[in-house]
Design a protein around this nucleic acid. Structure first.
Length: 470
RNA sequence: GCUCCCUUCGUCUAUCGGUCAGGACGCCAGAUUUUCAAUCUGGAAAGACGGGUUCGAUUCCCGUAGGGAGUACCA
């Protein structure tokens, strides 16, 4: 282990929302830095002026914020550093590792077509590479990297290990466009260098770029960062993620009701593992995360597994935290916020309602008995449990409840005794009881609900049903 | 086309030459049971294929197939 401080970065291009793959890349970078007392930085790669928008930048920041991935310092705009990039290109021009190329787009296209037709690699070979500068026309030009034509280009990757390209299979990439703006290849290298980035953790789709970019590092005589190219995430059908798969954006998961802690755990396990550990906290992930645990093959999204992870995390979330998650969830699905009274009722019922919930809406559903108000109208399924017989039984139960202590244990005993006396099964009482207490067929334990509601409210709901049943 | 990468149960994965190939989700069966769940017990389920190397390969090497990425004055 080197003693240089760890600096990682997430460098999205602001052309859309933060997608699930990008979120995981950001998370891995965050984990690596945070687990080692390093810095995690954010750089917005907005050199493509036509496609970059401030809205997309905001959306990405929102996504990271929701996931709880905090970054150090201010996000860096790559575009604003254009003059520094041009300066580096100029240095390369001066030290002979780059050249001006006056070929027009049409000429390049013709070259490629010919090459392709002849079955050759379609890498453009500029006639200006070794041309005498004196013969240069007074025309717009790009600045190209002078890629080596002999030997091999080798990159050491933490995950792929040694990756090599034969010189000549990497082209003379454009560093500066004809309008003087930098391309991604140049800008990314210069920024990573200037920001002191020690570890570049990014998607597998950049593996070849590591080879290309290493040439720029060498041209400038800069130390290379540690590269780690992580496998991509595929859709449930194993194909590349696309619109067809839905749930592409990280915020779509909030809209479905998954909590941030759930997503962090699930995302961490997609492509990374720590022995047989499946369910863990973000703190543990920070301690454990390292390159040897990262796999090589792309992973697929599995919502069933995600649900299961949610079960674990909701159960262990603290109530105040869950209330915040629920508020964010409601905003995301464009539902009105909870009023103070309902919120208070919900929070009080959380210890009961979060039991067995995988997603936020599950909690809301189970908490309805506490957030709703009398009289409770039984929904269709609940109504099936109510008939003249069951209502009569409930009426009799009410009497038994008059003298009960309203805690779970005593209530269980009282109701069990009552059932024994009547010679009926517990279920024959519990189900209609659930219907009158919550108006639903899906709700927490009837004893939990009564203990939570208290004697007065519980009996009032029983009486509502009895009155209506007459 | 060319360059590079990848390949263990349906899915996520463990294994770092010798294991009855382990775990998790899901699935199936059973238990529990006041609903949906949850919980508990048990079960089926995998090394893409073909060659090597080796006393011995899932593990190392080569090839094939399949998948992916790149091949832009996009990032």
């Amino acid at each position: 282990m080197s003693d240089t401080p760890v600096v990682t970065r997430f460098a999205p291009s602001p052309t859309g929302f933060l997608h699930i793959g990008g979120a995981r890349t950001a998370f891995f970078n965050w984990l690596y830095a945070r687990g080692r007392g390093g810095r995690f930085m954010l750089r917005i790669e907005d050199t493509d002026r036509a496609r970059s928008t401030p809205e997309a930048t905001d959306a990405i920041l929102d996504g990271l914020a929701w996931l709880g991935l905090d970054w150090d310092g201010e996000p860096i705009s790559q575009f604003e550093r254009a003059s520094r990039h041009a300066e580096v290109a100029k240095t390369m021009l001066e030290n002979g590792t780059a050249y001006r190329c006056y070929s027009t787009p049409e000429e390049i296209e013709t070259f490629r077509e010919t090459a392709r037709r002849e079955g050759q690699a379609a890498l453009f070979q500029s006639p200006w590479r070794d041309a005498n500068p004196a013969t240069a026309p007074d025309a717009p030009c790009v600045v190209r990297l002078k890629a080596p034509q002999t030997g091999v280009i080798r990159v050491n990757d933490k995950i792929r290990k040694k990756v090599e390209w034969r010189a000549g299979t990497l082209d003379d990439l454009v560093l500066l466009r004809s309008d003087g703006t930098p391309t991604y290849m140049l800008a990314a290298v210069v920024d990573d260098h200037d920001m002191g980035v020690s570890h570049v953790i990014r998607g597998d789709d950049h593996l070849i770029n590591a080879g290309r970019q290493s040439l720029i590092y060498r041209a400038m005589d800069w130390a290379l960062p540690v590269f780690a190219h992580i496998p991509l995430i595929h859709g449930e059908d194993g194909k590349k993620l696309s619109k067809r798969h839905g749930a592409l954006g990280i915020m779509d998961y909030l809209a479905m009701g998954y909590t941030a802690a759930t997503m962090r755990n699930y995302l961490a396990r997609l492509g990374w593992s720590h022995g047989n550990d499946e369910l863990f906290t973000t703190e543990q992930a920070k301690d454990w995360f390292d390159f040897p645990g990262i796999g090589k093959a792309p992973a697929r999204l599995d919502f069933k597994k995600l649900d299961n992870v949610g079960l674990f995390h909701i159960a262990r979330s603290d109530d105040a935290e869950l209330m915040e998650e629920i508020a964010a969830y409601l905003v995301q699905i464009k539902e009105p916020a909870l009023d103070a009274e309902t919120a208070a009722k919900l929070q009080a019922a959380l210890p009961i309602a979060k039991n067995g919930a995988r997603k936020l809406p599950d909690i809301l559903e189970k908490a309805y008995f506490a957030t709703g108000t009398r009289p409770f109208e039984a929904d269709e399924k609940a109504a099936e449990k109510l008939n003249s017989v069951s209502v009569r039984v409930l009426n009799e139960l009410t009497a038994a409840l008059q003298h009960a202590n309203f805690n779970k244990e005593d209530l269980e005993a009282v109701v069990a005794d009552f059932a024994a006396q009547k010679g009926i099964k517990l279920g024959q009482i519990a189900q209609p009881l659930r219907a009158v207490l919550s108006g639903r067929s899906v709700a927490p334990s009837v004893f939990d609900m009564m203990a939570h509601l208290g004697q007065e409210e519980s009996i009032a709901r029983l009486n509502d049903a009895v009155t209506r049943g007459r």
